[in-house]
Write a protein that binds this DNA or RNA. Structure first.
Lengths: 227, 227
DNA sequence: ATCAACACTTAGGATAAACTAAATTACCTG
DNA sequence: CAGGTAATTTAGTTTATCCTAAGTGTTGAT
């Protein structure tokens, strides 16, 4: 009986915290207050306060001085936000002429304002896509998400041929650079050379040979097969 | 030099106040605190407080105990919100299968979140429409608005033929009723009979003869000519 | 001309979310 | 294992927006 509390609608801030925590805990580790503060561009003390509120609402599991993880409910909400964000990005790019480097900020605001109905209409209009324009998987309406075994380009061996599937960045300038270099998702590339010690690598792409720095290569997630 | 202050972005609340004041002052009269409170579903005291803040920001002209009007700047912002709202409604109906009775609430939230770029993209995608699905004129990007000489159906004389152009209501149930009665904008109707003392009237529409109450007829704005 | 009713404003308080400054805890290093 | 550093939390303040309660202004009816 006490199980399903009547949940009052979350604030924008709360939604942003949950999203950020979701991202930070992708690796399985709890998210630290400072990391969260950095991700959200807030003072650590502000984050401590919000962590307390969200924990009281049952959305976070907080071990003081140890960090936070999402509860099942918190995770459900985070995935809903992620779905919204990625469906919106997909729709804006496909139907309203947005480019993949400018679409993030718009989606960041809209994701807090759209209704579930609108998200589903947009998804349906696009044929329920499984990935967004950056190659990121779009969680389903029930929270299930395609999990793909991608390898960062920075870890592909010399001689190997892979396909760029996903670009792990929201930075507009970086995304434009990647597009200009002809390394968008779907591009087949072969590693020609790799320098050690996080040095640059050389890849052959349809657009020609490119020298790619290690940090950038680490953001280009690739697959060997057709997916 | 002091003329153009750097204006920090308005809050959602402020935008809603400006919109409501715009509507209430359409007739030329100043808007009273109580009317505003009713329109926004807030306590009058809260409205007094916000009026003070918005006046200090130069968006309202407030005569204590006499009501408020918009300044030029306040009006500019209100028209921008109105454009957003009506462009969004138009887009959702045209492209995402919304019906005219459900679209209002969605637009009400989105109008605070969309960028100018997105609004213009949506408008362009629809060929820059001049009216929204309810027949309300959409202000231009520069604030100019088509002003049409419409007559409420409730004031059309017996025997006269007019075309419904605009429905002045945001209430979903009422809008559904109007659609069911076949009286959406664009419909040609002839007044067959009118009862006095705000009584019902009978009109002939393509869908058949309809008896329309006075209050509803007052919401159906009509024109005689092609517009 | 007064006063009751209503409209409006002021005063004071609550909540959410941010901040800074100060205190506390954890952990690594020597 | 003591101490220092970095991470975290607590305490107290600020801003925006709402509230209720109380006080003030306006006005129409007698």
């Amino acid at each position: 009986m006490t199980a399903d509390t009547i949940r009052e609608p979350l604030t924008r801030s709360s939604e942003d915290y949950l999203k950020a925590i979701f991202h930070l805990t992708q690796g399985g580790e709890a998210a630290g207050t400072t990391d969260l503060a950095q991700a959200l561009d807030l003072a650590p003390a502000s984050v401590s306060g919000m962590i307390k509120r969200l924990s009281e609402q049952g959305l976070l599991a907080h071990e003081p001085y140890r960090g936070v993880k999402l509860t099942a409910e918190g995770r459900r909400i985070a995935l809903r936000m992620l779905r919204r964000h990625r469906v919106i990005e997909s729709y804006l790019v496909a139907r309203l002429d947005y480019s993949w480097d400018t679409v993030h900020d718009e989606a960041e605001r809209l994701e807090h304002a759209v209704s579930d109905v609108l998200v589903e209409r947009m998804a349906a209009a696009l044929g329920n896509p499984l990935v967004d324009p950056h190659g990121d998987p779009i969680p389903g309406a029930n929270g299930e998400m395609l999990e793909l075994a991608h390898v960062p380009l920075s870890e592909v061996a010399v001689g190997d041929a892979v396909v760029v599937r996903r670009v792990d960045s929201a930075d507009a300038a970086r995304l434009r650079y990647i597009a200009d270099a002809g390394l968008v998702p779907g591009t087949a590339v072969t590693v020609v050379d790799r320098q050690p010690f996080r040095g640059p690598m050389t890849v052959r792409a349809p657009s020609g040979e490119r020298i790619v720095g290690h940090d950038l290569a680490a953001l280009l997630l690739c697959s060997r097969g057709p997916r």
